[in-house]
Design a protein around this nucleic acid. Sequence first.
DNA 1: GTGTTTGCAAAGAATTTGCAACGAA
DNA 2: TTCGTTGCAAATTCTTTGCAAACAC
Lengths: 140, 140
Amino acid sequence: MINSQYVDLLRKANYKITPQRLRVLDYLEGHPGHFKAEDVYNHVKANEPSITLATVYNIFRAMIRSGILDSFEINGTTWFESNTQPHANLYCEKCHKFEDFELPANVLPDRLSAEYGIHVRTASVLLKGTCRACTGDSHN
Amino acid sequence: MINSQYVDLLRKANYKITPQRLRVLDYLEGHPGHFKAEDVYNHVKANEPSITLATVYNIFRAMIRSGILDSFEINGTTWFESNTQPHANLYCEKCHKFEDFELPANVLPDRLSAEYGIHVRTASVLLKGTCRACTGDSHN
DNA sequence: GTGTTTGCAAAGAATTTGCAACGAA
DNA sequence: TTCGTTGCAAATTCTTTGCAAACAC
């Protein structure tokens, strides 16, 4: 099964494998991009009607601690993503979608740690502006 | 007066110069680092007792639009800073203070815009980890 | 004078908490 | 069996809003 890597990560971090957590992993499989708690809540509710938003938040915390998810905040809401590799997130202020961009090697956490004599646990690069599609768009 | 540059920026953006806004500028002058709305509120209250938190938020919005302040979010609260030059903010998870770091030229907004064919209006690099002081600290 | 800003109280949005019942290991 | 997890409701925290009075220009 395609999610077994994530299941392993949960197990390694001493989390139990519950049906709710498996349904969230299903969501990740089908949605490689960026999502809010409510997006996942709405999706999981279809198969697991008793689940609550609080449980989704709870599960996200476990998954972040397991190394499955990363998160960042925009305008008071937290966005999650399963791309845990260092990268830049561009939030398009026109179409309100995200686009990922590679980061130059010299801003990767390890490089920053080494260069500055600090310990960088997480690094998030958040760009706000206009995405490729909307920039190329003539009618704006 | 040392704040005249900020006053000019407010004027250029068509904002009026009110006593409350001047008191917030006073705060900036004495606090070059990172602060929350409540920090400024508590400080300004001393000279302007009728000010409210809502007004501070209101003033911050005007100052962001004037190019005086930048902001970013951590754990559900918004932090503000008057350093509007591109840089990385390290949030130390041990001492809960911030430390600023220069960014390599290839992650400056203009470079990213050019390289990726997008328009980058703001770029925020947020590092979480352990600051220089706490990393060098033996007892942890 | 005119339109902006302030102060106040109340609303809003997102996330967390407490706790009893449930369930994975 | 045991302790972590879920579901539910309520609470919290941060930020915004509506509106009348005050004020900058």
